[in-house]
Design a protein around this nucleic acid. Sequence first.
RNA 1: GGUCGGUUGGCCGAGUGGCUAGGCAGAGGUCUGCAAAACCUCGUACAGCGGUUCGACUCCGCUACCGACCUCCA
Length: 503
Amino acid sequence: MKNELKIYNSYTGQKEVFKPVHEGRVGMYVCGPTVYSDVHLGNCRSFASFDIVYRYLQYLGYKVRYVRNITDVGHLEGDADIGREDKISKKARLEEIEPMEIVQRYMNGFQEIMAVFNISPPNIEPRATGHILEQIEMVQAIIDNGLAYEQNGSVYFDTLKFAEKYGVYGKLSGRKIEDLMAESRDNLKNQDEKRHPSDFAIWIKAAPEHLMRWGSPWSVGFPGWHLECSVMSTKYLGETFDIHGGGADLKFPHHENEIAQNYGACGHAPANYWMHGNMLLMNGRKMSKSEGNSIMPGELFTGNSSLISKGYSPMVVRFFMLQTHYRSTLDLTDEALQAAEKGYRRLMEGNKALQQFDVASLKLATEGGDLDKEINSLIDLAFEDMSDDFNTPKALASLFELVTKVNSLKGGQLSFGEITATTLERLKKTFNDFIYDIFGLRDEDFDSSGNGVVDGLMQLILDMRQDARASKNWAASDKIRDALKELDIVVKDGKEGASWSKN
RNA sequence: GGUCGGUUGGCCGAGUGGCUAGGCAGAGGUCUGCAAAACCUCGUACAGCGGUUCGACUCCGCUACCGACCUCCA
Protein backbone atom coordinates (compact mmCIF):
# COMPACT_ATOMS: atom_id res chain seq x y z
CA MET A 1 0.00 0.00 0.00
CA LYS A 2 1.54 3.25 -1.12
CA ASN A 3 -0.42 5.71 0.94
CA GLU A 4 -3.28 5.75 3.31
CA LEU A 5 -6.33 5.88 1.04
CA LYS A 6 -9.02 8.37 1.92
CA ILE A 7 -12.51 8.20 0.50
CA TYR A 8 -15.31 10.73 0.78
CA ASN A 9 -18.20 8.81 2.27
CA SER A 10 -21.56 10.22 1.21
CA TYR A 11 -23.21 8.40 4.07
CA THR A 12 -21.32 10.33 6.73
CA GLY A 13 -20.49 13.37 4.62
CA GLN A 14 -16.83 13.06 5.49
CA LYS A 15 -13.56 11.99 4.05
CA GLU A 16 -12.56 8.82 5.83
CA VAL A 17 -9.55 6.55 5.87
CA PHE A 18 -10.44 3.45 3.93
CA LYS A 19 -10.45 0.26 5.93
CA PRO A 20 -11.77 -2.80 4.13
CA VAL A 21 -13.90 -5.40 5.87
CA HIS A 22 -11.35 -8.06 4.98
CA GLU A 23 -7.69 -7.09 4.98
CA GLY A 24 -6.37 -6.76 1.44
CA ARG A 25 -9.71 -7.30 -0.22
CA VAL A 26 -12.38 -4.94 -1.44
CA GLY A 27 -15.99 -5.62 -2.31
CA MET A 28 -17.43 -2.92 -4.53
CA TYR A 29 -20.89 -2.58 -5.99
CA VAL A 30 -21.85 0.04 -8.56
CA CYS A 31 -25.34 0.58 -9.86
CA GLY A 32 -25.30 -0.23 -13.54
CA PRO A 33 -27.51 0.92 -16.38
CA THR A 34 -31.10 0.20 -17.22
CA VAL A 35 -30.86 -1.23 -20.69
CA TYR A 36 -33.87 0.18 -22.45
CA SER A 37 -32.02 2.58 -24.74
CA ASP A 38 -28.52 3.58 -25.78
CA VAL A 39 -26.10 4.75 -23.11
CA HIS A 40 -25.54 8.46 -23.15
CA LEU A 41 -22.37 10.20 -22.18
CA GLY A 42 -23.50 10.98 -18.65
CA ASN A 43 -23.72 7.27 -17.91
CA CYS A 44 -20.25 6.86 -19.30
CA ARG A 45 -18.81 9.48 -17.00
CA SER A 46 -20.16 7.72 -13.97
CA PHE A 47 -18.78 4.34 -14.99
CA ALA A 48 -15.48 5.92 -15.96
CA SER A 49 -15.22 7.47 -12.48
CA PHE A 50 -15.74 4.13 -10.80
CA ASP A 51 -13.36 2.52 -13.23
CA ILE A 52 -10.66 4.78 -11.81
CA VAL A 53 -11.63 3.71 -8.30
CA TYR A 54 -11.49 0.06 -9.34
CA ARG A 55 -8.16 0.47 -11.10
CA TYR A 56 -6.53 2.43 -8.30
CA LEU A 57 -7.65 -0.02 -5.63
CA GLN A 58 -6.08 -2.79 -7.65
CA TYR A 59 -2.97 -0.71 -8.16
CA LEU A 60 -2.68 -0.32 -4.40
CA GLY A 61 -2.63 -4.08 -4.19
CA TYR A 62 -6.17 -4.83 -3.15
CA LYS A 63 -7.91 -7.86 -4.52
CA VAL A 64 -11.15 -6.33 -5.69
CA ARG A 65 -14.44 -7.96 -6.49
CA TYR A 66 -16.30 -5.44 -8.56
CA VAL A 67 -19.98 -6.05 -9.17
CA ARG A 68 -21.96 -3.87 -11.53
CA ASN A 69 -25.49 -4.87 -12.35
CA ILE A 70 -27.56 -4.71 -15.49
CA THR A 71 -31.11 -3.66 -14.79
CA ASP A 72 -33.22 -5.51 -17.28
CA VAL A 73 -36.45 -5.82 -15.38
CA GLY A 74 -37.45 -2.33 -16.31
CA HIS A 75 -38.39 0.43 -13.97
CA LEU A 76 -41.86 1.84 -13.90
CA GLU A 77 -42.93 4.85 -15.81
CA GLY A 78 -45.43 7.54 -15.01
CA ASP A 79 -46.54 9.31 -11.88
CA ALA A 80 -47.73 6.34 -9.93
CA ASP A 81 -45.97 3.10 -9.37
CA ILE A 82 -48.92 0.89 -9.99
CA GLY A 83 -50.63 -0.17 -13.16
CA ARG A 84 -48.12 1.33 -15.53
CA GLU A 85 -46.03 -0.37 -18.09
CA ASP A 86 -42.37 -0.57 -17.40
CA LYS A 87 -39.87 0.98 -19.75
CA ILE A 88 -38.64 -2.21 -21.28
CA SER A 89 -42.13 -3.58 -21.95
CA LYS A 90 -43.12 -0.33 -23.52
CA LYS A 91 -40.18 -0.28 -25.84
CA ALA A 92 -40.79 -3.93 -26.72
CA ARG A 93 -44.39 -3.24 -27.62
CA LEU A 94 -43.40 -0.31 -29.79
CA GLU A 95 -40.83 -2.31 -31.65
CA GLU A 96 -42.84 -5.55 -31.64
CA ILE A 97 -40.10 -7.69 -30.31
CA GLU A 98 -39.44 -9.63 -27.16
CA PRO A 99 -38.48 -7.61 -24.09
CA MET A 100 -35.39 -9.75 -23.73
CA GLU A 101 -34.43 -8.82 -27.27
CA ILE A 102 -34.48 -5.16 -26.30
CA VAL A 103 -32.44 -5.93 -23.24
CA GLN A 104 -29.88 -7.90 -25.21
CA ARG A 105 -29.50 -5.25 -27.87
CA TYR A 106 -28.90 -2.39 -25.48
CA MET A 107 -26.79 -4.46 -23.16
CA ASN A 108 -24.51 -5.35 -26.06
CA GLY A 109 -24.35 -1.72 -27.05
CA PHE A 110 -23.55 -0.68 -23.51
CA GLN A 111 -20.72 -3.15 -23.22
CA GLU A 112 -19.29 -2.10 -26.56
CA ILE A 113 -19.19 1.53 -25.52
CA MET A 114 -17.62 0.63 -22.19
CA ALA A 115 -14.89 -1.21 -24.10
CA VAL A 116 -14.35 1.74 -26.44
CA PHE A 117 -13.75 3.95 -23.41
CA ASN A 118 -11.45 1.30 -21.97
CA ILE A 119 -13.68 1.01 -18.91
CA SER A 120 -12.87 -2.33 -17.30
CA PRO A 121 -15.64 -4.86 -17.19
CA PRO A 122 -16.69 -5.74 -13.66
CA ASN A 123 -15.90 -9.14 -12.20
CA ILE A 124 -19.57 -9.93 -12.00
CA GLU A 125 -22.25 -8.26 -14.10
CA PRO A 126 -25.44 -9.73 -12.73
CA ARG A 127 -28.83 -9.18 -14.32
CA ALA A 128 -31.98 -8.50 -12.40
CA THR A 129 -34.00 -11.01 -14.40
CA GLY A 130 -31.57 -13.73 -13.39
CA HIS A 131 -32.24 -13.07 -9.72
CA ILE A 132 -36.01 -13.08 -9.45
CA LEU A 133 -35.97 -15.97 -6.97
CA GLU A 134 -33.53 -14.18 -4.69
CA GLN A 135 -35.62 -11.04 -4.91
CA ILE A 136 -38.73 -12.93 -3.88
CA GLU A 137 -36.77 -14.38 -0.97
CA MET A 138 -35.71 -10.94 0.14
CA VAL A 139 -39.26 -9.62 -0.05
CA GLN A 140 -40.30 -12.53 2.15
CA ALA A 141 -37.50 -11.83 4.60
CA ILE A 142 -38.53 -8.20 4.89
CA ILE A 143 -42.15 -9.22 5.47
CA ASP A 144 -41.01 -11.74 8.08
CA ASN A 145 -39.10 -9.02 9.85
CA GLY A 146 -42.25 -6.95 9.98
CA LEU A 147 -41.01 -4.18 7.72
CA ALA A 148 -43.23 -4.81 4.70
CA TYR A 149 -46.89 -5.52 4.11
CA GLU A 150 -48.96 -6.97 1.31
CA GLN A 151 -51.80 -5.10 -0.30
CA ASN A 152 -53.79 -6.56 -3.22
CA GLY A 153 -50.93 -8.69 -4.44
CA SER A 154 -48.32 -5.97 -4.16
CA VAL A 155 -45.84 -5.65 -1.31
CA TYR A 156 -44.74 -2.36 0.18
CA PHE A 157 -41.85 -1.46 2.37
CA ASP A 158 -43.04 0.12 5.60
CA THR A 159 -40.87 3.23 5.91
CA LEU A 160 -42.55 4.46 9.07
CA LYS A 161 -41.83 1.24 10.94
CA PHE A 162 -38.33 1.25 9.56
CA ALA A 163 -37.79 4.79 10.78
CA GLU A 164 -39.09 3.85 14.23
CA LYS A 165 -36.94 0.77 14.50
CA TYR A 166 -33.63 2.01 13.10
CA GLY A 167 -33.99 5.76 12.79
CA VAL A 168 -31.92 6.00 9.65
CA TYR A 169 -34.44 6.40 6.86
CA GLY A 170 -33.34 9.48 4.91
CA LYS A 171 -29.86 9.62 6.40
CA LEU A 172 -28.02 9.23 3.11
CA SER A 173 -30.00 11.84 1.23
CA GLY A 174 -30.51 14.14 4.19
CA ARG A 175 -34.26 13.78 4.19
CA LYS A 176 -36.65 13.68 7.09
CA ILE A 177 -39.56 11.32 7.15
CA GLU A 178 -41.90 14.18 8.10
CA ASP A 179 -40.83 16.09 5.01
CA LEU A 180 -41.41 13.06 2.87
CA MET A 181 -44.85 12.74 4.33
CA ALA A 182 -45.65 16.38 3.83
CA GLU A 183 -44.50 16.64 0.27
CA SER A 184 -46.36 13.56 -0.84
CA ARG A 185 -49.70 14.73 0.44
CA ASP A 186 -50.78 16.04 -2.95
CA ASN A 187 -50.64 12.76 -4.76
CA LEU A 188 -52.07 10.75 -1.96
CA LYS A 189 -54.94 9.71 -4.19
CA ASN A 190 -52.60 7.67 -6.38
CA GLN A 191 -51.20 5.85 -3.46
CA ASP A 192 -54.18 4.41 -1.65
CA GLU A 193 -52.58 0.99 -1.34
CA LYS A 194 -49.77 2.41 0.74
CA ARG A 195 -50.04 2.98 4.44
CA HIS A 196 -47.67 5.86 4.27
CA PRO A 197 -46.78 8.05 1.31
CA SER A 198 -43.07 7.40 1.59
CA ASP A 199 -43.58 3.63 1.52
CA PHE A 200 -42.34 2.06 -1.67
CA ALA A 201 -43.14 -1.09 -3.62
CA ILE A 202 -40.85 -4.08 -3.38
CA TRP A 203 -43.13 -6.43 -5.29
CA ILE A 204 -45.70 -5.21 -7.80
CA LYS A 205 -48.67 -7.11 -9.11
CA ALA A 206 -48.55 -7.04 -12.89
CA ALA A 207 -51.32 -5.40 -14.88
CA PRO A 208 -52.71 -7.66 -17.62
CA GLU A 209 -50.76 -5.91 -20.39
CA HIS A 210 -47.49 -6.04 -18.54
CA LEU A 211 -45.08 -8.26 -20.45
CA MET A 212 -42.40 -8.99 -17.88
CA ARG A 213 -43.94 -11.05 -15.08
CA TRP A 214 -43.06 -13.79 -12.68
CA GLY A 215 -44.98 -15.90 -10.19
CA SER A 216 -44.60 -15.14 -6.49
CA PRO A 217 -46.41 -15.89 -3.21
CA TRP A 218 -48.27 -12.59 -3.55
CA SER A 219 -49.15 -12.29 -7.22
CA VAL A 220 -47.91 -12.73 -10.74
CA GLY A 221 -45.84 -9.62 -10.95
CA PHE A 222 -42.37 -8.15 -10.89
CA PRO A 223 -39.91 -6.87 -8.32
CA GLY A 224 -39.81 -3.28 -7.13
CA TRP A 225 -37.54 -0.54 -8.31
CA HIS A 226 -34.69 -0.85 -5.91
CA LEU A 227 -34.73 -4.45 -4.82
CA GLU A 228 -32.35 -5.94 -7.36
CA CYS A 229 -29.34 -4.00 -6.08
CA SER A 230 -29.96 -5.05 -2.49
CA VAL A 231 -30.30 -8.64 -3.59
CA MET A 232 -27.38 -8.86 -5.93
CA SER A 233 -24.92 -6.96 -3.78
CA THR A 234 -25.81 -9.19 -0.85
CA LYS A 235 -25.54 -12.33 -2.94
CA TYR A 236 -22.13 -11.61 -4.44
CA LEU A 237 -20.47 -9.39 -1.85
CA GLY A 238 -22.11 -10.45 1.36
CA GLU A 239 -24.32 -8.64 3.81
CA THR A 240 -21.66 -6.05 4.55
CA PHE A 241 -19.23 -4.97 1.89
CA ASP A 242 -16.89 -2.05 1.38
CA ILE A 243 -17.90 0.37 -1.34
CA HIS A 244 -21.22 1.13 -2.92
CA GLY A 245 -21.18 3.55 -5.82
CA GLY A 246 -23.50 5.21 -8.24
CA GLY A 247 -24.50 8.50 -9.76
CA ALA A 248 -25.58 11.31 -7.46
CA ASP A 249 -29.06 11.13 -8.91
CA LEU A 250 -29.46 7.69 -7.39
CA LYS A 251 -29.02 8.90 -3.84
CA PHE A 252 -32.72 9.34 -3.43
CA PRO A 253 -34.79 7.34 -3.61
CA HIS A 254 -32.79 4.47 -5.04
CA HIS A 255 -29.94 4.17 -2.58
CA GLU A 256 -32.00 5.31 0.37
CA ASN A 257 -34.44 2.51 -0.32
CA GLU A 258 -31.69 0.06 -0.97
CA ILE A 259 -30.33 0.75 2.49
CA ALA A 260 -33.81 0.35 3.94
CA GLN A 261 -34.24 -3.00 2.23
CA ASN A 262 -30.94 -4.28 3.49
CA TYR A 263 -31.84 -3.28 7.01
CA GLY A 264 -35.21 -4.91 6.46
CA ALA A 265 -33.71 -8.20 5.36
CA CYS A 266 -30.38 -8.30 7.20
CA GLY A 267 -30.73 -5.81 10.03
CA HIS A 268 -27.93 -3.52 8.93
CA ALA A 269 -26.68 -1.33 6.06
CA PRO A 270 -25.08 -3.02 3.06
CA ALA A 271 -21.97 -0.93 2.54
CA ASN A 272 -19.45 0.92 4.70
CA TYR A 273 -18.55 3.57 2.14
CA TRP A 274 -20.99 5.22 -0.24
CA MET A 275 -19.56 7.04 -3.20
CA HIS A 276 -21.51 9.26 -5.56
CA GLY A 277 -20.24 10.57 -8.84
CA ASN A 278 -21.46 13.97 -9.92
CA MET A 279 -23.40 14.73 -13.06
CA LEU A 280 -22.20 15.52 -16.53
CA LEU A 281 -23.74 18.77 -17.67
CA MET A 282 -24.57 19.91 -21.13
CA ASN A 283 -24.97 23.63 -21.49
CA GLY A 284 -25.07 24.00 -17.74
CA ARG A 285 -27.81 21.44 -17.21
CA LYS A 286 -27.68 17.84 -16.26
CA MET A 287 -27.39 15.64 -19.29
CA SER A 288 -30.36 13.36 -19.15
CA LYS A 289 -32.53 11.34 -21.40
CA SER A 290 -35.70 13.07 -20.35
CA GLU A 291 -34.23 16.55 -20.84
CA GLY A 292 -33.28 15.69 -24.39
CA ASN A 293 -29.88 17.31 -24.00
CA SER A 294 -27.90 14.13 -24.04
CA ILE A 295 -25.22 13.34 -26.54
CA MET A 296 -24.49 9.77 -27.52
CA PRO A 297 -20.88 8.57 -27.42
CA GLY A 298 -21.04 7.77 -31.12
CA GLU A 299 -22.06 11.31 -31.98
CA LEU A 300 -19.20 12.65 -29.94
CA PHE A 301 -16.67 10.43 -31.71
CA THR A 302 -17.86 11.31 -35.18
CA GLY A 303 -18.70 14.94 -34.52
CA ASN A 304 -22.17 14.26 -35.82
CA SER A 305 -23.92 16.70 -33.51
CA SER A 306 -24.78 20.37 -33.64
CA LEU A 307 -23.31 20.76 -30.16
CA ILE A 308 -19.72 20.16 -31.20
CA SER A 309 -17.53 21.38 -34.05
CA LYS A 310 -15.74 18.12 -34.70
CA GLY A 311 -15.32 14.57 -33.47
CA TYR A 312 -13.34 13.68 -30.36
CA SER A 313 -11.77 10.31 -29.83
CA PRO A 314 -12.74 8.11 -26.88
CA MET A 315 -9.43 8.64 -25.12
CA VAL A 316 -9.69 12.40 -25.47
CA VAL A 317 -13.09 12.18 -23.81
CA ARG A 318 -11.73 9.94 -21.10
CA PHE A 319 -8.90 12.37 -20.47
CA PHE A 320 -11.41 15.21 -20.43
CA MET A 321 -13.26 13.45 -17.63
CA LEU A 322 -10.06 12.87 -15.67
CA GLN A 323 -9.40 16.61 -15.55
CA THR A 324 -12.36 17.02 -13.24
CA HIS A 325 -12.80 15.46 -9.83
CA TYR A 326 -15.53 12.83 -9.78
CA ARG A 327 -17.54 14.71 -7.14
CA SER A 328 -17.73 17.90 -9.21
CA THR A 329 -20.10 18.49 -12.05
CA LEU A 330 -18.47 18.55 -15.44
CA ASP A 331 -19.79 20.85 -18.12
CA LEU A 332 -19.30 19.53 -21.60
CA THR A 333 -18.34 22.18 -24.12
CA ASP A 334 -16.67 22.11 -27.46
CA GLU A 335 -13.96 24.48 -26.29
CA ALA A 336 -13.15 22.36 -23.26
CA LEU A 337 -12.95 19.25 -25.42
CA GLN A 338 -10.52 20.93 -27.77
CA ALA A 339 -8.34 21.91 -24.85
CA ALA A 340 -8.53 18.34 -23.56
CA GLU A 341 -7.48 16.99 -26.93
CA LYS A 342 -4.31 19.07 -26.87
CA GLY A 343 -3.62 18.20 -23.27
CA TYR A 344 -4.11 14.50 -23.88
CA ARG A 345 -1.61 14.61 -26.73
CA ARG A 346 0.92 16.52 -24.70
CA LEU A 347 0.71 13.91 -21.97
CA MET A 348 0.97 10.96 -24.32
CA GLU A 349 3.78 12.49 -26.37
CA GLY A 350 5.61 13.27 -23.18
CA ASN A 351 5.35 9.68 -22.11
CA LYS A 352 6.50 8.45 -25.48
CA ALA A 353 9.61 10.62 -25.22
CA LEU A 354 10.20 9.48 -21.65
CA GLN A 355 9.97 5.79 -22.48
CA GLN A 356 12.59 6.29 -25.19
CA PHE A 357 15.15 7.43 -22.66
CA ASP A 358 17.61 4.58 -22.38
CA VAL A 359 18.90 4.29 -18.85
CA ALA A 360 21.80 2.08 -19.90
CA SER A 361 23.27 4.44 -22.48
CA LEU A 362 22.64 7.80 -20.80
CA LYS A 363 25.18 9.55 -18.62
CA LEU A 364 23.22 9.73 -15.42
CA ALA A 365 24.11 11.02 -12.00
CA THR A 366 25.36 8.73 -9.29
CA GLU A 367 23.95 11.06 -6.69
CA GLY A 368 20.77 13.04 -7.15
CA GLY A 369 20.62 16.81 -6.88
CA ASP A 370 17.76 19.28 -6.75
CA LEU A 371 16.15 18.13 -9.99
CA ASP A 372 16.28 14.56 -8.81
CA LYS A 373 14.57 15.55 -5.62
CA GLU A 374 11.99 17.61 -7.44
CA ILE A 375 11.06 14.76 -9.74
CA ASN A 376 10.70 12.39 -6.84
CA SER A 377 8.48 14.78 -4.90
CA LEU A 378 6.25 15.30 -7.92
CA ILE A 379 5.84 11.56 -8.23
CA ASP A 380 5.07 11.26 -4.52
CA LEU A 381 2.57 14.07 -4.81
CA ALA A 382 0.75 12.41 -7.68
CA PHE A 383 0.23 9.30 -5.57
CA GLU A 384 -0.78 11.31 -2.51
CA ASP A 385 -3.40 13.10 -4.58
CA MET A 386 -4.78 9.88 -5.98
CA SER A 387 -5.00 8.51 -2.47
CA ASP A 388 -6.88 11.60 -1.38
CA ASP A 389 -10.31 10.60 -2.64
CA PHE A 390 -9.09 9.81 -6.14
CA ASN A 391 -8.09 13.33 -7.07
CA THR A 392 -7.29 12.73 -10.72
CA PRO A 393 -7.05 16.41 -11.73
CA LYS A 394 -4.41 17.06 -9.10
CA ALA A 395 -2.48 13.95 -9.98
CA LEU A 396 -2.60 15.00 -13.61
CA ALA A 397 -1.21 18.41 -12.71
CA SER A 398 1.86 16.73 -11.24
CA LEU A 399 2.24 14.55 -14.30
CA PHE A 400 2.14 17.59 -16.52
CA GLU A 401 4.86 19.23 -14.50
CA LEU A 402 6.87 16.07 -15.00
CA VAL A 403 6.16 16.21 -18.73
CA THR A 404 7.88 19.58 -18.78
CA LYS A 405 10.90 18.01 -17.07
CA VAL A 406 10.92 15.18 -19.56
CA ASN A 407 10.77 17.55 -22.53
CA SER A 408 13.51 19.66 -21.03
CA LEU A 409 15.71 16.60 -20.63
CA LYS A 410 14.96 15.65 -24.19
CA GLY A 411 15.58 19.14 -25.51
CA GLY A 412 18.76 19.61 -23.52
CA GLN A 413 17.49 22.42 -21.29
CA LEU A 414 17.99 20.06 -18.38
CA SER A 415 20.81 17.58 -18.07
CA PHE A 416 20.55 13.86 -17.47
CA GLY A 417 23.59 14.33 -15.32
CA GLU A 418 21.32 15.75 -12.66
CA ILE A 419 19.22 12.66 -12.11
CA THR A 420 20.01 9.14 -11.06
CA ALA A 421 19.18 5.94 -12.87
CA THR A 422 16.88 4.99 -10.01
CA THR A 423 14.89 8.17 -10.42
CA LEU A 424 14.66 7.84 -14.19
CA GLU A 425 13.47 4.27 -13.88
CA ARG A 426 10.95 5.32 -11.29
CA LEU A 427 9.73 8.14 -13.51
CA LYS A 428 9.30 5.81 -16.46
CA LYS A 429 7.42 3.29 -14.39
CA THR A 430 5.23 5.93 -12.76
CA PHE A 431 4.14 7.32 -16.10
CA ASN A 432 3.27 3.96 -17.51
CA ASP A 433 1.47 2.99 -14.33
CA PHE A 434 -0.54 6.17 -14.20
CA ILE A 435 -1.39 6.52 -17.84
CA TYR A 436 -2.23 2.94 -18.66
CA ASP A 437 -3.05 1.17 -15.40
CA ILE A 438 -4.60 3.86 -13.22
CA PHE A 439 -6.08 6.34 -15.67
CA GLY A 440 -6.85 3.62 -18.19
CA LEU A 441 -5.77 5.69 -21.15
CA ARG A 442 -4.69 4.10 -24.39
CA ASP A 443 -2.47 5.18 -27.22
CA GLU A 444 -4.47 6.17 -30.21
CA ASP A 445 -1.94 5.53 -32.90
CA PHE A 446 -3.55 4.56 -36.12
CA ASP A 447 -1.30 1.61 -36.70
CA SER A 448 -4.05 -0.95 -36.54
CA SER A 449 -1.83 -3.71 -37.88
CA GLY A 450 -0.42 -3.99 -34.40
CA ASN A 451 3.03 -5.00 -35.65
CA GLY A 452 4.59 -1.59 -36.08
CA VAL A 453 4.33 -1.37 -39.85
CA VAL A 454 3.42 2.29 -39.73
CA ASP A 455 6.21 3.04 -37.28
CA GLY A 456 8.66 1.33 -39.58
CA LEU A 457 7.45 3.18 -42.66
CA MET A 458 7.52 6.48 -40.85
CA GLN A 459 11.05 5.89 -39.68
CA LEU A 460 12.08 5.24 -43.26
CA ILE A 461 10.40 8.42 -44.49
CA LEU A 462 11.95 10.52 -41.75
CA ASP A 463 15.37 9.03 -42.51
CA MET A 464 15.01 9.98 -46.15
CA ARG A 465 13.98 13.46 -45.19
CA GLN A 466 16.97 13.71 -42.90
CA ASP A 467 19.25 12.77 -45.81
CA ALA A 468 17.68 15.53 -47.90
CA ARG A 469 18.20 18.01 -45.11
CA ALA A 470 21.79 16.96 -44.65
CA SER A 471 22.46 17.88 -48.27
CA LYS A 472 20.44 21.09 -47.80
CA ASN A 473 17.84 19.89 -50.25
CA TRP A 474 15.11 21.97 -48.59
CA ALA A 475 12.70 21.45 -51.47
CA ALA A 476 12.73 17.69 -50.97
CA SER A 477 12.56 17.84 -47.20
CA ASP A 478 9.71 20.34 -47.22
CA LYS A 479 7.86 18.29 -49.78
CA ILE A 480 7.95 15.30 -47.44
CA ARG A 481 6.83 17.41 -44.52
CA ASP A 482 4.00 19.04 -46.46
CA ALA A 483 2.79 15.75 -47.90
CA LEU A 484 2.70 14.22 -44.43
CA LYS A 485 0.85 17.24 -43.15
CA GLU A 486 -1.82 16.57 -45.74
CA LEU A 487 -2.23 13.21 -44.04
CA ASP A 488 -2.49 14.93 -40.66
CA ILE A 489 0.94 13.77 -39.64
CA VAL A 490 3.11 16.38 -38.00
CA VAL A 491 6.88 16.16 -38.26
CA LYS A 492 8.74 17.48 -35.27
CA ASP A 493 12.45 18.20 -35.60
CA GLY A 494 14.35 17.86 -32.37
CA LYS A 495 17.94 17.77 -31.21
CA GLU A 496 18.01 14.00 -31.39
CA GLY A 497 16.40 13.79 -34.82
CA ALA A 498 12.85 14.03 -36.06
CA SER A 499 9.75 12.46 -34.60
CA TRP A 500 6.15 12.46 -35.72
CA SER A 501 2.65 12.37 -34.38
CA LYS A 502 -0.80 12.16 -35.78
CA ASN A 503 -2.83 15.27 -35.49
C1' G B 1 -42.13 25.12 -1.85
C1' G B 2 -38.51 21.65 0.97
C1' U B 3 -33.39 19.67 1.20
C1' C B 4 -28.47 20.02 -0.55
C1' G B 5 -24.50 21.93 -3.47
C1' G B 6 -22.05 25.52 -6.55
C1' U B 7 -20.33 30.75 -8.12
C1' U B 8 -12.21 30.84 -9.26
C1' G B 9 -8.18 34.65 -14.47
C1' G B 10 -10.33 34.64 -22.08
C1' C B 11 -12.14 29.07 -21.57
C1' C B 12 -11.97 24.33 -18.69
C1' G B 13 -10.75 23.17 -13.87
C1' A B 14 -7.82 22.02 -8.75
C1' G B 15 -6.81 23.86 -4.06
C1' U B 16 -5.66 26.52 0.37
C1' G B 17 -6.50 30.93 6.53
C1' G B 18 -0.60 34.10 4.87
C1' C B 19 3.46 30.57 0.23
C1' U B 20 3.29 28.61 -8.22
C1' A B 21 -2.27 24.20 -9.22
C1' G B 22 -2.57 22.13 -14.09
C1' G B 23 -4.50 22.06 -19.22
C1' C B 24 -6.08 25.19 -23.41
C1' A B 25 -5.94 29.99 -25.61
C1' G B 26 -2.91 34.81 -25.75
C1' A B 27 1.91 37.96 -25.53
C1' G B 28 7.31 38.14 -25.63
C1' G B 29 11.82 35.34 -26.08
C1' U B 30 15.30 30.87 -27.06
C1' C B 31 16.08 27.03 -30.57
C1' U B 32 15.45 25.99 -36.02
C1' G B 33 17.42 26.38 -43.20
C1' C B 34 12.14 27.85 -42.64
C1' A B 35 8.17 26.03 -39.90
C1' A B 36 6.28 22.94 -36.24
C1' A B 37 7.43 20.86 -31.66
C1' A B 38 10.00 21.80 -27.28
C1' C B 39 11.94 25.14 -23.54
C1' C B 40 11.89 30.03 -20.76
C1' U B 41 9.13 34.43 -19.15
C1' C B 42 4.36 37.02 -18.52
C1' G B 43 -1.09 38.02 -17.23
C1' U B 44 -1.40 37.95 -11.10
C1' A B 45 -8.39 35.25 -10.72
C1' C B 46 -11.28 33.66 -6.72
C1' A B 47 -20.05 36.51 -7.43
C1' G B 48 -21.57 41.01 -4.17
C1' C B 49 -21.96 43.12 0.80
C1' G B 50 -20.89 42.76 5.87
C1' G B 51 -18.33 40.13 10.01
C1' U B 52 -14.33 37.09 12.64
C1' U B 53 -8.83 37.51 12.23
C1' C B 54 -2.41 40.40 12.57
C1' G B 55 -4.05 38.47 7.74
C1' A B 56 -9.64 35.40 3.88
C1' C B 57 -10.29 33.45 -2.34
C1' U B 58 -10.20 29.95 1.85
C1' C B 59 -14.16 30.59 8.28
C1' C B 60 -19.32 32.95 9.62
C1' G B 61 -23.81 35.73 8.05
C1' C B 62 -26.80 38.02 4.39
C1' U B 63 -27.90 39.00 -0.90
C1' A B 64 -27.81 37.70 -6.05
C1' C B 65 -27.38 34.08 -9.68
C1' C B 66 -26.91 28.87 -11.20
C1' G B 67 -27.64 23.77 -10.49
C1' A B 68 -29.06 18.88 -8.29
C1' C B 69 -32.57 15.92 -5.63
C1' C B 70 -37.74 15.69 -3.98
C1' U B 71 -40.56 11.54 -10.48
C1' C B 72 -37.38 6.95 -14.40
C1' C B 73 -32.30 8.60 -14.70
C1' A B 74 -25.14 7.52 -13.88
